[in-house]
Design a protein around this nucleic acid. Sequence first.
DNA 1: AATAATTTTTAGATTTGCCTAAATTTATTT
DNA 2: AAATAAATTTAGGCAAATCTAAAAATTATT
Lengths: 220, 220
Amino acid sequence: MLNYTTSEENYIKAIYHLQKVDGMVTTNELAAELQAKPASITDMMKKLKAKKLLNYQPYQGFRLTADGTKVALGIIRRHRLWEFFLAEKLKFTWDEVHEVAEDLEHVSNKKLIDKLDEYLGFPRVDPHGDPIPDANGKIEISKKICITELPVNTVTTVVSVSDQSSEILELLEHKKIAIGTKVEVKKKFEFDNSMEIKINRQPAITISEQLAKNIFVYTS
Amino acid sequence: MLNYTTSEENYIKAIYHLQKVDGMVTTNELAAELQAKPASITDMMKKLKAKKLLNYQPYQGFRLTADGTKVALGIIRRHRLWEFFLAEKLKFTWDEVHEVAEDLEHVSNKKLIDKLDEYLGFPRVDPHGDPIPDANGKIEISKKICITELPVNTVTTVVSVSDQSSEILELLEHKKIAIGTKVEVKKKFEFDNSMEIKINRQPAITISEQLAKNIFVYTS
DNA sequence: AATAATTTTTAGATTTGCCTAAATTTATTT
DNA sequence: AAATAAATTTAGGCAAATCTAAAAATTATT
């Protein structure tokens, strides 16, 4: 497999993530995501198209090709394995790992990553609960849904928190909600979309709509 | 501490290593080391001088300043800690680690490196026997000498092999000489500068001048 | 010490990745 | 369906890091 620049990799990764939400990704969306100007996006889109990583017709948005998706999954594999390493071995907290992994993910030595994977015991998810692609690029279809979509009286497990600001983390910590926490939705209030949830066997607690929107759980 | 580009770091590191042999480093030496053209060296020397990492007067060669040396030691610290990690934890062989560490060394997150150091148990030397600078940039003065300079009947430990081609590695493996091997020089022959050495308590073996010149040991 | 050889620097070009400003295309309104 | 607004692309420029070829400085040699 060929090598790509750090910049190319950042574009590919961003497109992969936006695609999942959107289907087709637009120039402005990607510019916002990467904190770059739209003109820069167009430049790179031409380059990635030339390398057959991207389906792109001017003004029509873009999607990764099968090859582009493979490259994206390689980057995501590296990112998430390093995140796991940082949390598990170096004792970083789960909210610190992303930033460091942003740099480590660009070291693309296959043997390094496969040996790291083995050393870590082939973990299936990273510290945020996101699945780690295997050496062949296979990734478990994440069956995550937002806790707001969960029916009442269903027990499930928190797998990820989308916002990762220190403000939300403070609140989560206070409410004792963390990745892996077992939660059950007890009541939903239409007035303000707040909800009551139970954590383990403790009394129900209330979470606001804003908070709920950022908490994701497994469907099963 | 400021951040430097991968390219700047590679120049700084190369100057540091050449300085130790040479005192003053020349444009052509550095060009050879970095596989670049002399014109490119001059360009970068101007830049590093402007950043006060280098003492440099046109046509007079260059040396790192105290600041430059500090930066170099940071890079070398990262490089050697990753080498140790790769050998110790991921089970890379000692001749494979350098290449991978060349990429990892440019991820310059102080917390990452200090936690890695701690995780590894604050190792003093890398898998080639070279000393690892501590978090403050302190490095043990390496008391390595070539085995050819060792007096007879002195027991010592192999700390490094300068050449790392597969040819020399094959020979070293055959002769059971590795980093950490205890050796004792028994005889030196003036005719061809070959020597007989004993490894542990086994019968003496002969090594050629060419091989001996590449084997380094501790003086004590 | 003058000339030749070598080393180093300068000048100017190229590529990558980004930018601003202007032009173009597409989408939205009236 | 025009006109307006928004999104996107093009054109041209800039900085970093490299290169080639030519000029300048230093070192070595006769």
